[in-house]
Nucleic acid binder design. Structure first.
Length: 589
RNA sequence: GCGCCUGUAGCUCAGUAGGAUAGAGCGUCGGACUUCGAAUCCGCAGGUCGCAGGUUCGAUUCCUGCCAGGCGCACCA
């Protein structure tokens, strides 16, 4: 809310002090260019906003930090724009400059928070961002790991939009290649089992030594194919029933299986509050339209022609030179049999994104794909150069989720089809608790997800703690109505009765919300927001417990009105924050 | 073997681009409901920030080397 103003204040102060003190611009410039680093000290004795700026300048200027701080502080005090905004500027510790926001400014902020819909400051340079997440292969239902990526990606999209960016969300469907064929075969074999015509020989012939896909959903799809005549063309059905595994049987079973599974995935995602602007099919990259070469061929050929040797042909294959970025060998894009690797498809997909004009690409991946990062960065760089534009690629690696139940780990094996699906987790613990639990930890650290605890209504499961704070306010307001308290207007004057230090603490915390969001948007994180909401809820619970809000005494009325206003502001920020996490804020629980 | 990530209180984790006395919650123990919802609040205890060096006025944070755990290193997807 006030970060930009405060930063501006510091920049002007440093330049002014620098001019009169003869500080070298070479020292100042890099520090100012990086942006003034602002902190919100936990201890209020250190003010509302703090910066270690002077310590950073100390070395370059060859002066003690406190001396530098003094000059900067003087310049700030002389700046007319600090009037009204600040009530205190101090130097503390080794050379921190601590600012205290004026009461009047805080009240103005509070008034706006109660009134306006737009709670947040927007980024100064909105970007057109493509955010790709989940992108699970349509070979089985989403599991708990995908759930984390879904919660993270969706919440990040909401935050980026709130911050003012233009965001498109996308799910990349790996619907080409061997895995899909194997899926079709697996369903076909299950179909044969239902018919009583299954044989081990046929299985070996189709799958070799492999087991294929084995989850419960495989026979379920086979059953549907058996039950619903429309799912297979009559001649294909005849071939399947008589054990002729022709190309069109393969194609039909794969098609049905994929459609069914994708429909289930989308159903789970919808239930989870996650929607995508677009589902992008890998298959479309391989298809040729109107006599044109497939997109994938187009891009690989283009790269081979114009990448200056980064993409080159050798041994009958086409390679990407990844050794220049630390890889131990170059990687194949086009195999000697003429088909393309997954990597090649990914290149074409990212080329497509760039072609669509995105300025920033965000890929949310499972952490097991980390080995792919450097390669993809190199690809995007090459493609962006070809397009003659600056395109940033941010890769968010989501660390793994270990599922627990009452402290004991729930074993999971994807291969054997034994895993807990996202749908099951939602059934058991609910959407709100599931999403919140996923987002209580940084996505960069692994997460222990305890089903029993996620359901528990305790502090172990802070979603209820935060929701309860919101419900408390709503209940309070309802109580106020019952007591015929009218509170339509909350002007600065009405709010000026909030003189208690703990009230100021709450306002100060509310004022940080916007900055937290901007930080999330800048660093592509969600967790700081979750953390903030827990802190805010805690502060309100504390306040509520120690302060009587409603009162029938006439002399207490101004304070009562002001506290109701403060409570409304808290509830609005909580609700807004929760909505960005995709979590509801019920009025009662 | 090479590469990436992680190692902070008994447990699960924060710690914002080196900085102020390293923070929460849970768990343990002990307190608070005649008053707006006790799904809440208050207090006590708990740490050589994996180990050892180095850079710095200052290191949980940066560098190097170890140790431990996880993951990745296909003309698979």
């Amino acid at each position: 809310m006030f970060e930009k103003r405060v930063s501006g204040l510091f920049v002007r102060a440093v330049l002014k002090a620098g001019a009169s003190e003869g500080w070298s611009e070479e020292v100042l410039k890099p520090v100012l260019d990086r942006g003034i680093r602002l902190e919100w000290p936990k201890k209020e004795e250190f003010g509302d906003i703090s910066t270690p700026l002077a310590m950073g300048l100390s070395k370059g200027l060859g002066k003690p930090p406190r001396i530098i701080a003094e000059k900067v502080v003087q310049a700030i005090k002389d700046d007319p724009l600090s009037q009204g905004l600040l009530s205190g500027v101090d130097i503390a510790g080794p050379g921190y400059i601590n600012l205290t926001l004026s009461f009047s400014f805080l009240l103005k902020f509070l008034e706006e928070t109660i009134l306006s819909e737009g709670l947040t400051e927007k980024v100064s340079h909105p970007r057109k961002i493509n955010l790709e997440f989940v992108s699970a292969n349509p070979t089985g239902p989403l599991h708990v790991g995908h759930g984390r990526g879904a919660a993270f990606g969706d919440s990040l999209a909401r935050i980026l939009r709130e911050a003012g960016h233009n965001v498109s969300t996308e799910y990349y469907i790996n619907d080409a290649g061997n895995q899909m064929n194997m899926l079709g075969k697996s369903v076909y074999l299950a179909f044969r089992k239902l018919d009583g015509t299954f044989s081990a020989e046929e299985k070996t012939r189709l799958l070799g030594d492999g087991e294929g896909y084995r989850g419960d959903y495989i026979p379920a799809i086979a059953q549907r194919i058996r039950d619903e005549p429309d799912l297979l063309a009559p001649e294909v059905r005849l071939e399947a029933q008589s054990g002729h595994f022709t190309d069109r049987v393969q194609a039909a079973f794969t098609e049905v299986a994929q459609t069914e599974i994708l429909a289930d995935i989308r159903k789970d995602l919808t239930r989870f509050g996650v929607s995508f602007d677009r589902y992008f099919s890998e298959k479309t990259l391989h298809e040729s339209r109107r006599n044109e070469a497939p997109r994938i061929a187009h891009w690989i050929a283009l790269l081979e022609r114009e990448s200056g040797g980064t993409v080159y042909g050798s041994e009958g294959a086409v390679w990407f030179r990844t050794t220049t970025m630390g890889d131990d060998k170059d990687r194949v894009l086009k195999k000697s049999d003429g088909s393309y690797t997954y990597f090649a498809a990914d290149i074409a997909y990212h080329a497509d994104k760039i072609e669509r004009g995105f300025e920033a690409l965000v890929d949310v991946w499972g952490a097991d794909h980390h080995g792919y990062q450097a390669r993809m960065q190199a690809v995007v760089k090459v493609l962006a150069d070809l397009a003659g534009r600056q395109v940033d690629l941010k890769i968010c690696l989501i660390q793994l989720v270990s599922l627990m139940r009452e402290g004991k780990s729930v074993s999971m094996s994807t291969r054997a089809g034994e895993y807990v699906t996202l749908g099951e987790v939602i059934d058991e613990v609910g959407v709100d608790a599931t999403r919140f639990s996923y987002l209580t930890r940084s996505h960069e650290s692994s997460l222990e997800f305890d089903l029993a605890k996620a359901k528990e209504r305790s502090m172990d499961n802070p979603v209820f703690y935060v929701q309860y704070a919101h419900a408390r306010v709503k209940s309070l307001l309802a109580q106020a109505v019952l007591r015929n308290v009218r509170h339509e207007s909350f002007t600065k004057e009405d709010l000026s009765f909030l003189t208690d230090p703990e009230e100021r603490t709450l306002i100060r915390l509310l004022a940080q919300f916007s900055g937290i969001l901007l930080r999330c948007a800048e660093s592509f994180e969600v967790h700081p927001l979750t953390d903030y909401l827990i802190t805010l809820a805690g502060a309100y619970h504390h306040f509520y417990f120690h302060h009587r809000i409603l009162s029938s005494e006439e002399k207490d009325r101004p304070v009562m009105i002001a506290r109701i206003g403060l409570s409304i502001a808290v509830s609005r920020i909580l609700k807004k924050g929760l909505s960005l996490l995709g979590v509801s804020a019920p009025d009662s629980m």
